[in-house]
Structure formats: C-alpha cells, structure tokens
Amino acid sequence: MENIVSNIQGIPLNHYIIFCSLIFAIGVTGVLIRRNVIIIMMSIELMLNAVNLLLAAFSAYRGDASGQVFVFFIMALAAAEVAVGLAIIIMVYRNTKSVDIESLSKLRW
C-alpha cells in the first residue's frame, strides 16, 4: 500500500482536485444543457465518478482507507439508483415514445 500511496502522492493533490472538479463540472453542464434523458443520466454518473476519483485520491493522500470505503458505498448506491432510473426511463418511454426531456411538459414549473 505504501508504494501506491507514494506514487499517487507523486502527483500534486491540486491536480486531482482540479481534474475532478472539471469532470464534475462537465457532468453538471451535461445535466443542465442536454435534453436526452439517457445522456443526462450519464452526466450524473460522470459527476459521481468524479467524486469517486477524488475520494480515492484524498484517501490515498491521507493514508486513510475510509475514503475508499465510501467509494464502495457510492458505487453500490449509484448502481441501485441507475437501475431504478433506467426503469423509470423505460416507463416514460413506453408512454411517450421519447426520451427527450422537453416532452415532459405536462407538469409545468
């Protein structure tokens, strides 16, 4: 473990933070500007994965395993979420024949 930690620490922490923030930002942007529900969902996954990566990096830097355990939780629950989300999208698709977020306009905010 020491080895891998020292290797990861070879890269400045800031790089991880900036990199993950960028991925996260890309995910957020994707959610906000894309109209295809599937792509929105993928963007959300991207956000979660940015989080995972950053957690792993922090965890390695601090030599504290709890960050990586947290990654497990995130992955597991993200999977559950995706499963439910896909089911919902299928359900919507069956009713509307579309996965475009614009077609969801019966309820107006």
């Binding site: 497990f72 992955m75 597991a76 999977a79 559950a80 995706v82 499963a83 896909l86 089911a87 299928i90």
Partner: peptide, 20 residues
C-alpha cells in the same frame, strides 16, 4: 423484450453486491 432489460438491471444490482 423487456426481459433483457430486466436481466440487465438485476445484473447491475447483483454484480455490485458481489463487489462488496
């Protein structure tokens, strides 16, 4: 068929449990 989809969802869930 929706069945394939069901299998996919079940896989996602069970496979992640296996990771644990």
């Amino acid at each position: 068929s929706i069945k394939y989809f069901l299998v996919a969802i079940l896989f996602v869930i069970f496979d992640v449990e296996v990771i644990f």
